[in-house]
Amino acid sequence: MRLMLLIRLIFLLLLNGVVLSYAHAASLAYEFSRVSNNSTEDLGRQLSMLVTEQSGGALFTFSNRLGVPSSITDIYFDDASQPLFSSIAYHSDSGAGVSFDSQAAPANLPGGNVIGFLAGFSGDSSAQSVEGGVATKGVMKNGVNSTDEWVSFLGLWANAGSFDGLIKAFADAHFRVGLHVQAIGLAGRSDSYVNQPSPVPLPAAAWLFASALFGFIVIANRRKV
């Protein structure tokens, strides 16, 4: 009986490892580093990008965690070095209070020329939008603010594109994502940010492991009764 229990626990651990590996491979989170110095506030760890594998491409979802008041108003993708995508365009958002279009203005990340950033695809918040029949005005009002708001862009692979290739391109800085953030803090300054080359741990994966471990303990205790 104990041998069978041990075999089942090993099998569940291996299965859990496979699930965790897939979760890490299919969805990765990145934070950002500041490339300009206009504001006294550094929002690097407040800004987040979740990259999720999709059929035929990758989905980029941006959020602005609760913290310093600010608004992500422009998003840029540098895919010039070794192109992975045939297109990257606005896909969806959290709803009221967020409104984005493809093709940002200016066309390149402000201050991006200092680090050789060259945007091939981009998008920005709309100057005027209609949400539930009510007109909302202002780029910053329609950006991703430090609440529960988010916006996503869908990239479709070019011939050489793949999710593994994208992760490697992030690490090698051959693919970069830039954000222009406005209305930062009380002074209302703006700054530009570029993604960090390495992903940060996903909390969901840790919870998945913890829940699986708890399940193993419950099974073991029931076997003793």
Rank of each mutant, 00 (worst) to 15 (best):
R34S: 12
D79A: 10
F32S: 09
S36D: 09
F60G: 05
E41T: 03
V68H: 10
V68N: 13
L47I: 14
F60P: 01
R34M: 07
A58S: 09
I72Y: 15
V19T: 08
L59M: 12
I72P: 08
Q46V: 05
E53H: 13
F62I: 12
Y22A: 04
S63F: 03
S63Q: 13
S70Y: 10
S21K: 06
S36A: 02
S55P: 00
L9R: 11
V35N: 05
I75W: 09
D42F: 02
S70V: 04
L66E: 07
L59I: 08
A25N: 00
S36L: 06
A80E: 01
Q46Y: 09
T52F: 04
L66M: 10
A58R: 03
L59V: 03
L43A: 01
G67W: 05
Y30R: 11
A23F: 02
N16R: 06
T61K: 12
P69Y: 14
F62H: 07
L15M: 12
D78Q: 14
V19W: 10
G67S: 15
D74E: 02
L20C: 00
S81M: 13
G67C: 13
A25P: 00
V18N: 06
Y30M: 10
D78G: 04
V68W: 05
V68Y: 03
L59E: 14
G67K: 06
N37M: 05
G57I: 03
L59N: 14
D79E: 09
L50F: 10
S39V: 02
A25I: 02
R65N: 12
E31I: 01
G17F: 06
L66Q: 11
A26Y: 04
D79P: 02
T73Y: 13
S27Q: 11
V18K: 02
V19L: 07
L9A: 06
L28C: 10
D42Q: 11
G17R: 13
L14D: 04
S63Y: 07
S70R: 11
S63K: 04
A58N: 02
V18Q: 13
T40G: 15
E31W: 03
Q46P: 07
S81Q: 14
R45L: 13
P69W: 12
E41S: 07
E53T: 03
Y76A: 01
S33N: 14
S27A: 14
V18P: 05
S36I: 04
F77N: 04
R45I: 02
T61D: 02
N64M: 11
V51C: 07
L50K: 12
L28P: 00
S81W: 00
L13K: 12
S33H: 08
M49I: 05
S39E: 01
S48V: 05
F60S: 07
V68K: 10
E53M: 01
F32P: 01
T52K: 10
N16H: 09
Q46S: 14
V19Q: 02
E31V: 06
S55Y: 03
Q46E: 15
V68E: 11
V35M: 11
L14C: 12
